[in-house]
Design a protein around this nucleic acid. Structure first.
Lengths: 233, 233
DNA sequence: GTTACAAGTAAGTATTCACTCAGTAAGTGA
DNA sequence: TCACTTACTGAGTGAATACTTACTTGTAAC
């Protein structure tokens, strides 16, 4: 009504709408977010939204498009690898950054998951930018360490995905599913532990790697009868 | 309309509606699924849905409630551990089952993710049944192997979550995000590889704490340092 | 064959959805 | 000061949405 109006320039208003829409889509998904909500949060009428974006669908597209244009995890990861350090430093550094970013801001994870679930056609591109690219970078690193004889020979992509899986799944459980309400973890400790486990599992240990590059390799006690938890002691 | 009507008994119709609603909620989420859709798939009118369930929300609750009552992953996992075998057999067996089930039917993963994203109050219970319980079972196993001196000493919960993370993340990337369109993996091979990496990383190894030197076999050798410091004891 | 009840429906309700359009107020250059 | 453009709104549109009410039909026991 008669309240003092704020007139933005078109480009600024567009940016503002995009920012607000990003937050709402992340929290509630595409279907769960209404254009009215977006308008209200922006302090304008719905009509204005549609003056800037031809449809809700196009607005969603723009949100995701913008997200894929900021520096992605792949670049940061590749930067970190370029900086060098021990394997452990590099890996736990990568894990630490992922965990920290995600704990701080779930927007991206939520957008990504929603778009995958709602099977938006654009989810493909999003997926490539945020998921595929990052483990391809890591896989490249793994491959180079394998060539150097430091890592065991196995599918680098699978190995990279394994490491990222450890880290990302942990962050999902903690932040998305609310696991942190039951148990808190220190980011540094988690990163280091997961990196150690994975790295130790990847190293071509003195005895095993030569004979069997991939089959077996773990020294299993024959016919173990131990290790089951129930009533043993 | 004039088609031959099928009259179910109340209990049967309720079951049928539940089954249909489960599929739709899994595919489209709570907000994305309409009562009209459910009715159409069941071949009845909306009114009948509301004769069996007081509201859409209650129907959703019933869907999830029913899902939490079938044999969950925790029971199956604990069964597998009880059966015994080598560590590798047990772990790759667990991974294999998870991957196979999920590739075959995404309903559960999708329901779980949707309910977490849409922050349904019931998602908590769902989360406990399907996520927490399963890694608690695995953590118990890890703990027993640590007590036996076979595994390194570290947070068993974190370690268990790490293993499940590898496996579950892989299945999400393949099935949920459509990664399998770009690359196929054999379930057996993936299970075995991931189990090997993780297990190898967990073993309180004799020799693997050797120097891992620095990463990056390709370029740039700045900041070279000593080997990593993992697994000292 | 009638009755009694269970299973099912047609046709609504009020509200909300994405989206439109005709019009108005604020800035800007002369 | 006036003309012109740009930013914005009020008041709608028809098509969904979850949910209701008043009614009909099938079936099984007596």
């Amino acid at each position: 009504m008669a309240t003092a109006q704020v007139r933005y320039k078109a480009a600024d208003r567009k940016e503002q709408i995009l920012t607000i829409a990003t937050g709402l889509f992340a929290r509630q998904g595409f279907r769960g977010t209404t254009t009215k909500q977006i308008a209200e949060h922006a302090g304008v009428t719905e009509a204005l939204i549609f003056r800037h974006f031809p449809s809700k669908e196009e607005l969603y597209w723009a949100v995701i498009d913008r997200k894929t244009k900021v520096t992605g995890p792949a670049e940061r990861m590749s930067e970190r690898i370029r900086e060098g350090g021990t394997d452990l430093e590099i890996l736990s550094g990568i894990a630490e950054e992922i965990l920290e970013r995600r704990a701080q801001d779930q927007t991206l994870s939520r957008l990504l998951l929603y778009s995958a679930l709602e099977s938006h056609r654009l989810s493909n591109r999003f997926f490539r930018t945020y998921v595929v690219e990052s483990y391809e970078v890591l896989a490249e690193y793994v491959r180079s360490r394998m060539d150097a004889g430091a890592f065991r020979q196995l599918d680098p992509l699978l190995a990279a995905r394994g490491f990222l899986g450890m880290v990302i799944y942990h962050s999902w459980v903690q932040d998305l599913f609310g696991g942190k309400r039951y148990q808190a973890f220190s980011v540094k400790e988690v990163s280091r532990t997961l990196a150690e486990v994975w790295l130790n599992g990847m190293l071509s240990s003195a005895g095993t790697s030569s004979a069997a590059s991939k089959g077996n390799g773990t020294r299993n006690n024959s016919r173990k009868q131990q290790g089951n938890s129930n009533g043993a002691h």
